[in-house]
């Protein structure tokens, strides 16, 4: 069966999913663990603040608002982005990149697509959960779908930034710490730990000037009906701009630094 423009991309997606799910229990455990442990921590914090501390609202959000945010944001956090940028820096460092450079495909795109496969699978799973929740809570299934699209755009941006940063390994042989710090900043500014409207208004420019809030906060707010269709359309457009800008950044950084590749370890 010819898949036209998809070509090898479809095969890479399939291969990536096979690879990610080679150990099914491990895959399931990773998904459940990374979803429920952070959700439980957040629930404990909100419980302490509202039920034990006696607060009724925090930044205009009630206890129920917080719990809804936590449950929904956990779903989008699963889509946020994988470790493909770490994989890239490791390949640059160890010489594993050589395997990919000699195949007639773009290495950055190839690694992304293979890593995207399990995320798409999880996105489908999260959608089903979201639809199920929408039966009991006043959520719109259509909004859930739109929010998931935005979260997937966030996944692309997250990888693109990581792929550009990973080129540091061409110069310093190691970009692990840099990528790790990026992920820590993302975990704070994407809204996966706390709703970003808890950050004082005076400092909101910080998270608004990065694309990270498009990963979790913006999709969660839209899915929960807390942002308008116009706002969502603007965020979707903004995510597209980020994707194009990051694509340019990747072309620039990889074009410049690949000349320094040493192909070690052979």
């Amino acid at each position: 069966m010819s898949l036209g423009v998809l070509g090898w991309r479809w095969a890479a997606l399939r291969n990536g999913l096979q690879d990610a799910t080679a150990y099914r229990i491990e895959f399931l455990f990773e998904f459940l663990g990374s979803a429920f442990v952070p959700a439980a921590v957040q629930w404990i914090v909100w419980y302490a603040l509202f039920q034990l501390g006696g607060a009724t609202t925090v930044a205009g959000m009630t206890y129920v608002d917080m719990i809804q945010y936590t449950l929904m944001s956990v779903l989008f956090t699963q889509i946020r982005g994988g470790d493909q940028d770490f994989e890239l820096q490791e390949m640059i460092r160890t010489g594993g990149l050589s395997n990919y450079l000699l195949r007639p495909v773009g290495v950055v795109e190839f690694v992304f697509i293979r890593g995207l496969a399990p995320k798409l699978f999880i996105a489908g799973f999260c959608l089903v959960i979201g639809f199920a929740i929408s039966l009991f809570f006043p959520f719109s299934a259509l909004r859930m779908l739109g929010a998931m699209l935005l979260a997937l755009m966030g996944n692309i941006i997250h990888y693109q930034l990581g792929a550009a940063l990973s080129t540091v390994a061409f110069y310093w042989e190691e970009a692990f710490a840099m990528l790790m710090v990026k992920n820590l900043i993302v975990s704070l500014l994407s809204g996966e730990k706390i709703p970003l409207n808890l950050i004082p208004e005076a400092y909101s420019w910080i998270w608004k000037s990065t694309p990270f809030y498009l990963y979790v906060f913006a999709p969660t707010q839209f899915a929960l009906g807390r942002s308008s269709i116009t706002q969502f359309a603007g965020e979707l457009l903004l995510s597209l701009v980020w994707v194009v800008a990051c694509w340019g950044l990747i072309r620039l950084t990889w074009g410049l630094s690949i000349k320094r590749y040493l192909s070690l370890g052979g």
Partner: peptide, 20 residues
């Protein structure tokens, strides 16, 4: 240096190479 994927059977990697 291994070029094939460690956790997959060889035939899966060959199928991908066929597409590539």
């Amino acid at each position: 240096k291994a070029q094939l994927w460690w956790d997959l059977p060889a035939v899966d990697a060959f199928d991908l190479l066929q597409a590539i």
